[in-house]
Design a binder for these strands. Structure first.
Lengths: 196, 196, 196, 196
DNA sequence: AATGAATGAGCTTTCATTCAT
DNA sequence: GATGAATGAAAGCTCATTCAT
């Protein structure tokens, strides 16, 4: 079972990376086996998973937990006092998470249309809970009006999600973060004074 | 020539839609032929295109021009006087364009990793020019400081690009637009007074 | 009909050459059309021939007549008096004919197994009549014993047919001819004196 | 390994035969599979060979060694004393070899134009070494003058190579051999007395 | 647990042939 | 007489999956 588990994990990691690089259809079972150190094409994968699809499902389940860390925003950044400092920390943290789980993100992007049930729901849940957490933090720690908080949180996260489209071609990550903090910092300040 | 051109166009349209739905690899030539009204599997497509890949290339070329309309921001929305009104128009316009060319956007997202030369460059050019145009508009019409304009424009467009991730699950499009206008409107007002 | 005949002939010539180069199956109708100056793939060939096979049949018929010239040995080389001189002329003539109709020879070689009825019989007839003519010449002009003449003629022609296998790698054509004349010249002299 | 090797060999044998009968292009992978006892069209062949072309290459390599036996002329027929007896043995041996490896010979003939590098060189090497061996035997055992020996050997083998064109239509194999021995026997005798 | 072999279904592409223009 | 378009059939090859060893 020890060896078994090790192989299982190697398969899952290899698969997620390959799925992220070439998509689900673009990745053959043989390629996964090769990347996991098994003989390609010999079907060794099927001792650990019933189908190729099951590999995807389990790989997502296994990795999605980590991205869930986005939900911990409130816990992680409570009590720093200064809005701009905290926003900067959050932006860097979210971008770092997205980067660390880039394979996963890529799979989610690539496969969400093909597997709305499996992947689509995962994405929705992830986005929804992140927004909710972010919004709650804005309300609790910074006294943002509830109506506005959710919308601002959604917008702020939305722009972070598109970071890869902007950086590094159009803007460096640093400039991106600075601008992000300034924009949403000022929006929040303005908002608290006179909510939309 | 009439029938020929008609079939060609039908193939291109069908292909782009299918590529957007199932990706390039996930779309068979037979499926494209069927969607274009040809006998599936009979290879009729090859009377119009040398390879399946050539279909992708031409479909992108043909449709990218339209999305290029994003570059016309300055021309379209000059002279409305009121910042909030103009921003609202812009947001709606960009979202409508993204929606109208959703097949294309989807293909760009799905295939940009597999075909960095063909698709990746297209995306980069599209994003870069949109940001540039938007920034120029901010500077010329609203006196935004040049340094800040580019960063704000990038951020504003980035959040629009992620709209589909947010709406309708988390926020309705209307709420999204309202919030977007408020956020970037206030950021710009604040920015002009005291640039970063 | 004039233009028609011209196109017909161009098709036949182009086809025979291509068949010789790439075989019957290896030559597409489109390739023949292109080589004949028609639009490839447009089926123009079918205004002149019912099928691709018919092109082969007619091309063979048309060209086989020329190779038949091998049968004219007797007429061409009667009365030169000197055996070695005449044999040299014959060798060169046969090799030149084989070279001139090399496309045809190649087709006969390539397709004789696939089409024993069409091609195989042609080859057999060609070989048989050449041998007969050559033997008759040996008997009439050089007094070779009839029993031996046919066998020697067969052997002599057989080695000429393999000339391409030998020249130029192993022997130059000149050396080949010289040796051929010496060999069969001496065989005939020896034979007439003391038949096998 | 047993089953594997058996299937591999069955594929190679089936392929060579089919290539000889219908040529390389005329033989489908499915046909080879069927002839080798695999499910036609299922691609089982590709577990043993990377491409159809690789099957040809390996089949040639595997069988060419046997035809190489033509090079053993000297060793096989040393010391029989009587020229006519030895020539008869040689003729029968070479014809038997050509007959035994008729599939191979046929492939070499059919494909030498399409694949000059793979097949053409094989043929050239085979012919050249046969001629060289035959000539050496003539020189060593029968004192033939070196200049003449090579040319006579080339001619003698050339006529054997064309045997199939002659027999059985024009001459029986027996008559062919008898005539061959007489012709080249007398040429050699004449040659030794008065070399060209 | 891993492998070599096999298979059914699918893929992209080619091609001989037909037909309306 | 020639062309553009279409089609049925088949080609070489890939692949997810199964199974005996």
């Amino acid at each position: 079972m020890t060896a078994s588990t090790a192989t299982r994990d190697r398969i899952l990691d290899a698969a997620l990376q390959l799925f992220g690089e070439h998509g689900f259809r673009g990745t053959s079972v043989a390629a996964i086996e090769r990347a996991a150190g098994l003989t390609p094409g010999a079907g060794g994968l099927y001792h650990h998973f019933r189908t190729k699809e099951a590999v995807l499902t389990e790989a997502l389940e296994r990795h999605v937990g980590r991205l869930g860390a986005l939900r911990d925003i409130r816990r992680l950044f409570a009590g720093v006092q200064d809005l701009e400092v905290e926003l900067t920390l959050i932006a860097r943290y979210v971008l770092a998470e997205l980067e660390a789980e880039h394979d996963l993100v890529q799979v989610l992007v690539l496969e969400s249309r093909q597997r709305p049930d499996l992947v689509g729901q995962t994405v929705e849940r992830l986005v929804a809970s992140s927004v909710t957490e972010f919004a709650a933090w804005l309300v609790q720690d910074w006294g943002a009006p509830a109506e506005q908080a959710r919308a601002t949180a959604a917008l702020a996260l939305a722009s972070l999600f598109s970071h890869r489209l902007i950086s590094p071609t159009v803007l460096s990550t640093e400039e991106f973060v600075t601008s992000w903090v300034a924009t949403f910092g000022s929006a929040l300040s303005a908002g608290s004074r006179s909510p939309l």
